[in-house]
Design a protein around this nucleic acid. Structure first.
Length: 855
RNA sequence: GCCCAAGUGGCGGAAUUGGUAGACGCAAGGGACUUAAAAUCCCUCGGAGGUCUCCUCCGUGCCGGUUCGACUCCGGCCUUGGGCACCA
């Protein structure tokens, strides 16, 4: 052992040791409780960044800790290897995506291995390998057979310069992220997964995931966006046609003063055909379409519309109301048509104001002066809205309103429903509509089906062919995988690269044997990451699903679900929602048993430097490789864990890293100093044989065990766990053993420190563990438990307050009687001075804590 | 606009159920060792004031409330960060 701590001399050696012994490889063992610890797998960009270090350090502490608690821990890693960057590298540097990816994986793997993480490398997966993506294809076919994968026309982001589809994330301020060209909307045939079939279950289970952060669940709930209401048919005047609308405010049906249609609504052209309105309406529709859905849904453009010349009839009261086309109505949501209630919907209010359309008040606030028994009408309503009139006076009938009243209240001017509270009115009107056949109750979701088609090369080929005779035909299971051809020219232009590959494109129809062509789109890479955690469960990475068997595989049955999942908050919705969806689909296919993939979720904060997220473009990157070179893996891990609790953002600090390094150096020096003397005394020192500083150190050791254990168990607050270990090391540093018993306690404390530290800084812990004479690896040592008896202090500090202000401190034996405490407090010198000549009103005693003398 | 977090020293952050605010670390200042520096070790370290080893007052974004006692609970604001955003 060298005098000075030099991580270079030890870390590689221990990494090799763990690898050779295969200590992190696991197999299922029904006699042992399992623990599945998983960090979100990386995209092989070529270099790890501090976010990875933090993520993996957190996961590794948990995995190593649980292993020492005797659990059968599976802690796998792999590569999210398909994706656009590989294709961009091909475009820019002419390197094949497969080669680029492979080289990056090699590079990143060696970087990750330098961190000394406890991965079961034997289970490593690579989503770009045919062994993996064949199961993407297999799952796709199973979903296709069940109608969960389907094809339809859909509007996509299209860059006219790059001639390719862009994902929403790749559109920045309406422009292509690569060439700055304005992105347009284009109708394309796309494959979709029917995630909406699972909307209700995905939403419902949000309340059954206690191990998930509340804000992630809230984000998912908002994303799913359930809303309950009714669909109502409004007959079109002078025609057989009916206009179906969706509303959640059926209680305002008596306040409808016009209708608004989405420009894309098919009835628009029917209504205006051959009328004098046709030209204006078509022009407006075209103009709106050109805006693109991104801009239209941004809320930034002004509400505009045009009258169609037609009228609809309100089925409840027979009112005839004009039908307009409005740019803010979306075809994708509800029915693409809405009833407009300017008095109670702000958007309608603004629209009505602009075009001079009337409003009708049908809800008044329950706080307004009118009693429920005789609801107000006409002029009286206006009196109850004594708002100053302003620029909105063109909204006839609501001249005194500044804005729509969207709140709850009492229904007025609503025929037989007048006088009801809104909640009750909603129910009654919904039932009435169903009874009269005007429409039906309806639940709508904001969640859309998941479009998975990508006009790109580096992804899983969608396993279908198009046959002129048979139509869309899925590839039979036995012919999987559909291999992604290697010989492809990638230009970044002209849509799907695969459509240029003749040998891939041309095939025979599996059904009729005739000529057919293959689908040339590939799958969204989110498909790959939607079930990879299940793939890890298979021995030697040999994935095997069997839908005929209908009984889940033994391995997945043992390991799933993931007990602890750790990753960035940026995946709060997409990846985590898709993974939940896939789990449910796979359950329904009989492949696995559980409803949810991740029992507990930890969303770690970002790594920040100089007030901003570390990123290449900001130039505030800290390279983990440099850090490991300079300080070693243990210091890098330690700082990531010590600087902040995992869920919070971590502010980078070069000096903070120095601090972590110094701590390990002090521990090293301490053990180096005592190494020889610790070999002397054998046997254990019992708590009762101890006194003075030896006893104090023994107590502190036990307190530290408790603190570290609880901090890990409760909420993974490693920063405070490490702080308490630092305190213990500080105490040892000022400890001066005077007896063999003292030395025995010191040895015990050193051992405990190393065991407690080993999940955080495994290399130095192994090394020092060996230095003090242990033969077996520290990994195999059981996590210590604390001696409850030893925790107790001989004296407890009792704080004395006079009227809530701290005035003195006394030490008393624990659990002293209130009377004794009072007496001691009152006679304390300083306290006595404060209360002298004053009348004591009350004395509050909190046992073992404090006395408050109120004067 | 709506929803959700979070505001504590010069900085990162501590503070079980309301009970000593500032653990631990960093930075800073002083000292030791050294020819010198680095490294290491020791001391001080929220602010103001005083009769300065000790004591007083103020202090956890702001204003109020509950309580013997509030960083912690309640009400109302302000600021920052994140998510959603014409979803009918």
């Amino acid at each position: 052992m060298s005098e000075r701590y030099d991580p270079k001399k030890i870390e590689e050696r221990w990494q090799g040791f763990w690898l050779d012994k295969g200590v992190f490889e696991v197999k299922e063992d029904p006699s042992k409780q399992k623990y599945y610890c998983l960090e979100m797998f990386p995209y092989p960009s070529g270099n790890i960044h501090m976010g990875h270090v933090r993520n993996y350090a957190i996961g590794d502490v948990i995995a190593r800790y649980k292993r020492m608690r005797g659990l059968n821990v599976i802690h796998p890693i792999g590569w999210d290897a398909f994706g656009l960057p590989a294709e961009n590298a091909a475009i820019e540097h002419g390197v094949h995506p497969a080669r680029w990816t492979e080289e990056n994986i090699d590079k990143m793997k060696s970087q990750i291995k330098r961190l000394g993480l406890s991965y079961a490398w034997g289970r490593e997966i690579n989503t770009s390998s045919p062994d993996y993506y064949r199961w993407n294809q297999w799952l796709f076919i199973k979903m296709f057979e069940r109608g969960l994968a389907y094809k339809r026309k859909s509007s996509v982001n299209w860059c006219p310069s790059c001639e390719t589809v862009l994902a929403n994330e790749q559109v920045e301020d309406g422009r292509c992220w690569r060439c700055d060209t304005d992105v347009i909307q284009k109708e394309l045939e796309q494959w979709f997964f029917k995630i909406t079939d699972y909307a209700e279950e995905l939403l419902g289970f949000c309340d059954k995931l206690p191990g998930w952060p509340e804000r992630v669940l809230t984000m998912q709930k908002n994303w799913i966006g359930k809303s309950e209401g009714v669909e109502v048919d409004f007959p079109v005047k002078g025609s057989e046609k009916k206009l179906r609308i969706f509303t959640t405010r059926q209680d305002t049906l008596y306040g409808v003063t016009f209708m608004s249609l989405a420009p894309e609504h098919p009835i628009v052209s029917e209504l205006v055909r051959g009328t004098s309105y046709e030209k204006d309406v078509i022009e407006f529709v075209e103009k709106t379409k050109r805006l693109g859905s991104l801009l239209r849904t941004s809320g930034e453009i002004e509400k505009e519309g045009v009258f169609t010349g037609s009228y609809a009839i309100n089925p409840l009261n027979g009112d005839e109301v004009p039908i307009w086309v409005a740019n803010f109505v979306l075809m994708e949501y509800g029915t693409g048509a809405i009833m407009a209630v300017p008095a109670h919907d702000q958007r309608d209010f603004e629209f009505a104001g602009k075009y001079g359309l009337p409003a009708k008040i049908v809800i008044i606030s329950a706080d307004s002066p009118s009693p429920q028994s005789s609801p107000p009408r006409g002029e009286e309503i206006k009196r109850n809205f004594p708002l100053p009139s302003g620029e909105r006076e063109r909204v006839r009938g609501a001249e005194l309103m500044e804005s729509a009243y969207e709140g709850e209240g009492i229904m007025v001017d609503s025929g037989p429903f007048t006088g009801l509270r809104t909640e009750e009115g909603k129910d009654k009107i919904a039932s009435f509509i169903e009874k009269e056949g005007f429409g039906e109750k309806k639940v709508n979701y904001r969640l859309r089906d998941w479009g998975i088609s990508r006009q790109r090369y580096w992804g899983t080929p969608i396993p279908v062919v198009y046959c002129d005779r048979c139509g869309i035909v899925a590839i039979p299971e036995k012919d999987l995988p559909v291999i992604l051809p290697v010989d492809v020219e990638i230009t970044g232009k002209g849509g799907s690269p695969l459509s240029e590959v003749e040998s891939f494109l041309k095939t025979d129809c599996p059904k009729c044997g005739g000529a057919a062509r293959r689908e040339t789109d590939t799958m969204d890479t989110f498909v790959d990451s939607s079930w990879y955690f299940i793939a890890y469960c298979f021995k030697n990475g040999k994935i095997e699903f069997n839908a005929e068997r209908r009984t889940p595989n033994e391995e997945t049955g043992y390991w799933m679900p993931v007990d602890q999942y750790i990753g960035g908050i940026e995946h709060a919705v997409l990846h985590l929602l898709y993974a939940r969806f896939f789990t449910k689909v796979m359950r329904d296919l009989g492949l696995i048993m559980m409803d949810e993939p991740f029992s507990n979720l930890l969303t770690q904060g970002m790594v920040i430097k100089d007030g901003a997220k570390m990123s290449k473009s900001k130039g505030n990157i800290v390279d983990p490789n440099y850090l490991i070179d300079k300080y070693g893996a243990d210091t890098s891990r330690l700082f990531s864990l010590f600087a902040a609790p995992p869920e919070k953002d971590l502010e980078w600090s070069d000096q903070g890293v120095e601090g972590a390094y110094r701590f390990l150096g002090r521990l090293w020096a301490l053990i180096s100093r005592y190494k020889e003397r610790l070999k002397g005394p054998e046997g254990k020192a019992g708590f009762n044989d101890l006194y003075g500083q030896g006893k104090a150190l023994y107590r502190k050791t036990n307190q530290t065990i408790k603190k570290v254990t609880n901090d890990i168990e409760k909420d993974f607050h490693f920063n405070t766990a490490l702080a308490s270990l630092m305190e213990l090391v500080n105490m040892m540093n000022s400890f001066e053993p005077e007896s063999n018993n003292d030395l025995r306690v010191l040895k015990k404390t050193i051992e405990t420190t190393l065991i407690l530290l080993s999940p955080f800084a495994p290399h130095i812990s192994e090394e020092l563990w060996q230095t003090i004479g242990h033969k077996e690896s520290i990994i195999l040592v059981a996590w210590p438990s604390w001696d409850e008896e030893a925790l107790k202090e001989e004296e407890v500090l009792i704080v004395i307050q006079v009227s809530g202000k701290l005035r003195g401190k006394i030490y008393l034996p624990p659990n002293s009687d209130d009377g004794i405490i009072k007496e001691a407090a009152l006679s304390e010198k300083k306290v006595a001075e404060f209360i002298k000549d004053k009348e004591i009103k009350k004395i509050v005693v909190v046992r073992n804590k404090l006395v408050n003398i109120v004067i």
